[in-house]
């Protein structure tokens, strides 16, 4: 098990008028190579949770283990942790600062204390991974299109060679194609490099397409941590948390109510199509 949270609590602004229990007794394990979706409405504690994973926020109580080591143990190397658990913030393009794309991406690996050659090699590799072509390496990051900027920013994290990649709404504000491009790159990282992925998103359709397991946060509590399809079966509870299931889940459930012999498992368009056709065939 790669990441373990054991009864993690986080109380924000303790002792002030702003005090808030942002995380309540969070416990879970994430295995190497999993693709996890993290959903929850704004303010449910998602962002706080992911910032615990790479030590940017320290828990008020509870323990966190990464690769078997307690990250709060004395002398634990936080910088190392941050390189192993890469965190891509929302609108990551807002963190770009260098004069060229390449220099910006090399920033992370240089911070790790790698020698120049190794750092540059990693930066180059990372930019290839996100599909930035060579002719853009010397361009100013501020001249790129929105989608390109975002990919450069993601490369900036990938160049640290993380084992776990956390993305906080990586597709926010992008158009449908830009969104698919980013998610396809992420899937590739998951499949080819075997990276553990944690995807924070509002899109249930994306979650249904890509994620093995779904974490659902509500008011600082981790309500679900089950396989995606199981979670969507609880779509009525999700609605109470101001969330929803993919549209096809609703179609399947409504058909079932009307007496169709369909399973409500389907969450993607392809699954639903096959299931409806199968059901129609069997009704013949």
């Amino acid at each position: 098990m790669q990441i373990i949270f054991d009864k993690v609590n986080y109380i924000y602004g303790k002792g002030t008028a702003f005090e808030r229990h942002a995380l309540k007794d969070i416990s879970f394990c994430i295995n190497k190579g999993e693709f996890i979706g993290l959903i929850g409405h704004t303010g449910s504690g998602k962002s706080t949770l992911i910032q615990h994973m790479n030590g940017l926020i320290k828990a008020s109580s509870g323990s966190i283990y990464f690769n078997g080591e307690d990250i709060y143990a004395q002398g634990y190397n936080m910088k190392q942790l941050r390189s192993k658990v890469g965190l891509v913030f929302q609108y990551p393009e807002h963190q770009l600062f260098e004069t060229t794309v390449f220099k910006d991406v090399v920033f992370g690996p240089l911070n790790l204390g790698l020698d120049k050659l190794e750092a540059e090699l990693r930066a180059y590799e990372a930019l290839r991974m996100v599909g930035i072509s060579d002719d853009l390496l010397d361009a100013s990051p501020f001249e790129l299109s929105g989608g390109q900027k975002r990919r450069v920013a993601i490369a900036g994290v990938l160049a640290m060679k993380p084992e776990v990649l956390i993305l906080d709404e990586p597709t926010a504000g992008l158009d449908p194609r830009g969104r698919d491009d980013i998610l396809d790159q992420v899937t590739k990282l998951h499949e080819e490099a075997g990276m553990t992925i944690i995807l924070v998103t509002h899109s249930m359709e994306d979650v249904a397409c890509y994620c093995d397991r779904l974490f659902v946060m509500n008011n600082g509590e981790l309500v679900f941590q089950n396989p995606t399809k199981e979670v969507f079966a609880h779509y009525k509870e999700l609605e109470e948390m101001h969330l929803a299931a993919p549209q096809v889940t609703y179609v399947m459930n409504m058909l079932k109510e009307k007496g169709w012999n369909v399973s409500c498992d389907a969450t993607t368009v392809e699954e639903a199509r096959d299931e409806i056709i199968r059901a129609l065939g069997s009704m013949h």
Partner: peptide
């Protein structure tokens, strides 16, 4: 045109293509 359609529209369209 780099856009997409609501998931139900897509499903209906796929079902039509399958001959429904």
């Amino acid at each position: 045109y780099r856009l997409d359609v609501p998931q139900v529209t897509d499903l209906a369209y796929e079902l039509r293509k399958s001959g429904l």
